[in-house]
Design a binder for these strands. Structure first.
Lengths: 107, 107
DNA sequence: TGAGTTTGCTACGTTTTCCGTAGCATGGAG
DNA sequence: CTCCATGCTACGGAAAACGTAGCAAACTCA
């Protein structure tokens, strides 16, 4: 069961939403799943393939978390971002451009 | 040694910068460290305290990664964000406001 | 109806990561 | 020399993530 805002997480007992969020996004595959789903719904197995054949165990654990946090939901079209999830993913989108310039500077 | 752009990471063999970034940020304490350092440089032990007394082992591992990726550097004032690091952290800043409305909606 | 396919997902045993505690080495201050 | 703060490592145990195999339910098509 994923920790929700208001609950104590690793490194913060205050339950501040940003701390809960940073903790949740810091788990393996969390960011990647949001990223992949931002381009549309996906079945479990499709999502698994998009994530480089991540094991179903790991994928399912992260999906459980993200569903608890109401960022992802299982719909008739497969796994999809919720309204909150889309909102969050929209803020992560620009990271792609940033990452490219960062990579170029790293040479 | 942290994986750099161009190198294969978990779930992606292409080395695309965004994939490398998502993988790096998906490690424990990575996001939190960037977050804490965005409000100014910090000594190792201070940073440790800010992160809820994270173990030095974990903190140091993550700092090594972030230094490899040139997001963090050890300066005369302590650990600090590099130019790239500040740039990235600036894009994470707005997540705080988002997290608050998200938490309120989850309430 | 019944064989084949695709779905989401779990069981299980192994590997990797993370963690807490203790403490070392260096350097500055008194 | 003593005291204290610094960055950091060693070590053993706990938790998280992993790969492989495969189940049960729903669909497809004969």
């Amino acid at each position: 069961m994923a920790k929700k805002p208001g609950q104590s997480v690793r490194g913060s007992t205050t339950g501040r939403p940003i701390m809960v969020l940073l903790d949740a996004l810091g788990r393996r595959w969390a960011l990647r799943v949001l990223w992949e789903l931002s381009s549309g719904p996906s079945s479990f197995r499709d999502l698994q393939a998009r994530c480089g054949d991540v094991s179903p165990t790991s994928l399912n654990a992260r999906l459980k978390d993200l569903r608890d946090l109401q960022l992802v939901a299982l719909t008739e079209e497969g796994y999809a971002l919720t309204r909150h999830g889309r909102d969050l993913a929209a803020r992560l989108g620009p990271l792609n451009a940033w990452a490219n310039t960062w990579a170029k500077a790293l040479g």
